[in-house]
Design a protein around this nucleic acid. Structure first.
Lengths: 147, 147
DNA sequence: CTTCTGAGTTGGTAAATGCAACTTAGTGAT
DNA sequence: ATCACTAAGTTGCATTTACCAACTCAGAAG
């Protein structure tokens, strides 16, 4: 199972948890409501050992939680649900999807649309200031925190 | 070199370009101003064959551009600079960094801060509606585009 | 006490990664 | 002209990771 590197850069640490192959796709399915091992397997075509490893990493770092569930007349089984930390990754997934839609488009157009819930109004991911107002990329700076 | 999958999901296509190991870290350095092969090598400790492959993929998909440069008294060499498409990945990188800062923190605090350029005002990544107003995650929905 | 099903593990092969050494191409000094 | 210098790679080999198929495990129903 992956471990996070001892790196001062939080991007590197985030990638330690999320940066392996399949992880983002597993999170995409989780976001779409999938919770079961066999479900992830079928939807992604992922090998069971790799899936087991990735889910283990996500559970270890509290991105997902392993919870038992029981269907009528069946024994208790494991389900994997997103924690609040995992739900916050929606922003990352949407940012990636948005970039793919724009820069790797298909003639059919996007397969998924990001909307304000319950409406037809478009939503997207972007930079925001502390007043909740969108900022253009050009007016954002990433500066070293001089500790 | 990686190729994008023929997948209707633009997240999967984006990961075809960006989802290999090292790619996000290379983009982090590019965003921080690095342009040279040897510079990426030193800053990341990446193997030269892997770096060559990743830069090739990024150039192929127009995330970076290979441009010649010439220093006084040296021969012409190759530099790698972000294209506009590559610059737009700042949103993705910042979203990942922000998540790492929050969910995989270190006692020292974050090593980088996201600010409104030229000010001390904090900036962050989030969902925005078509009026440029921030939206809470809970009010965003991802819906299949019924084509 | 056998079958069914979801959730995994195990074992062998193919692919990706890492490391060291080598190649290539021009420049400036000898 | 040729020699050393340097950035930008390529090549060959050992290690790690991923993939695939087959198998195990646990409990409920028949």
């Amino acid at each position: 199972m992956a471990r996070i590197p001892d790196d001062p850069c939080s991007l590197a640490r985030a990638l330690g948890v999320l940066g392996e192959r399949w992880t983002f796709l597993i999170l995409r399915e989780a976001n779409a409501g999938e919770t079961r091992f066999a479900g992830f397997r079928e939807r992604l075509g992922i090998a069971p050992d790799v899936l087991s490893d990735r889910l283990g990493t996500l559970v270890f770092y509290s991105v997902m939680e392993k919870v038992p569930y029981q269907e009528a007349g069946a024994r208790s089984r494991a389900a994997y649900v997103l924690t609040p930390a995992g739900q916050e990754l929606t922003v990352v997934l949407s940012a990636l999807r948005q970039w793919g839609d724009k820069h790797l488009p298909r003639p059919e157009g996007p397969s998924m649309l990001c909307r304000v819930a319950g409406t037809k109004r478009a939503a997207h991911v972007g930079f925001v200031d502390n007043q909740g107002r969108e900022l253009p990329i050009s007016s954002v700076a990433l500066i070293p925190s001089s500790v």
